[in-house]
């Protein structure tokens, strides 16, 4: 059975409308849920392959929905919607296999690209990983499968292919943090900031880890702040 359908979970009407409109050109069925409860009910539908989920929901919040979905429907890829600049519990989301984040507001093309990338990721193999992007995608595929050691290996290889981009270093840092190696995490966040001081997620991660006070998650946003866009 094909898993073409996309489930949008947001209590804000304008976000549901914006996503519906942006996703229309993909020609895939788009379902919407206004609450976490409704989303979990709808996830019984085996046709759903991607869920776009807001962290903030009335009732059961996005993290709780993700937690249950990761147990009941581990085959569904989840994209978390975040508020701009926030790093809302990203480490927890990552531990539950959610590796994609999109900040509000987003451009229609961005969300379409992301949904396509997420949908194609499962089928990726080593042969697809000749370049930086491909390696990062394989790292994310491994995180989705909760294989953090394999993810770290891919992320390191990505960095080896292009040591002038911040996202790879930030990802290596985040994976070290998940694997409880604070020193290596710090070192890689620093390298990320060094190659691109404008890459906000790494800056946030570094500050949080240095201060050691932060309760926030690991900032690791695909697109936010990367240069050359």
């Amino acid at each position: 059975m094909s898993q073409d359908a996309i489930l949008v979970v947001d209590d804000e009407k304008n976000i549901r409308l914006a996503l519906g409109q942006a996703l229309k050109p993909l020609g895939r069925p788009v379902l919407t849920a206004l609450s976490g409860e409704e989303a979990l009910e709808m996830l019984h539908d085996p046709g759903i392959g991607v869920m776009i989920l807001d962290y903030r929901l009335p009732g059961i919040d996005g993290m709780a929905v993700l937690e249950r979905a990761s147990r009941e429907r581990p085959d569904v890829a989840v994209i978390m919607i975040t508020a701009y600049g926030s790093v809302e519990r990203a480490v927890e989301a990552m531990k539950l296999g959610a590796v994609d984040f999109i900040a509000k507001p987003f451009a229609p093309e961005e969300i379409r690209d992301l949904v396509s990338r997420v949908s194609n990721r499962e089928a990726l193999t080593e042969a697809d990983a000749r370049d930086y992007r491909g390696r990062l995608e394989l790292a994310k595929q491994a995180i989705r499968r909760r294989n953090f050691a394999a993810a770290l290996d891919h992320a390191r290889k990505a960095v080896g292919l292009d040591p002038y981009r911040a996202e790879g270093f930030n990802l290596v840092g985040a994976l070290h943090e998940i694997l409880h190696d604070r020193e290596e995490a710090l070192r890689n966040y620093r390298l990320a900031v060094e190659v691109d001081p404008a890459y906000a997620p790494a800056q946030t991660n570094l500050e949080r880890l240095v201060s050691r006070r932060g309760q926030g998650g690991i900032a690791w946003d695909d697109d936010a702040g990367e240069k050359g866009r």
């Binding site: 009407k13 304008n14 976000i15 409308l17 914006a18 519906g20 409109q21 509000k104 507001p105």
Partner: peptide, 9 residues
């Protein structure tokens, strides 16, 4: 409008 489907910032 109630049908406005964009983002407010």
């Amino acid at each position: 409008d109630a049908q406005f489907s964009g983002f407010k910032l």
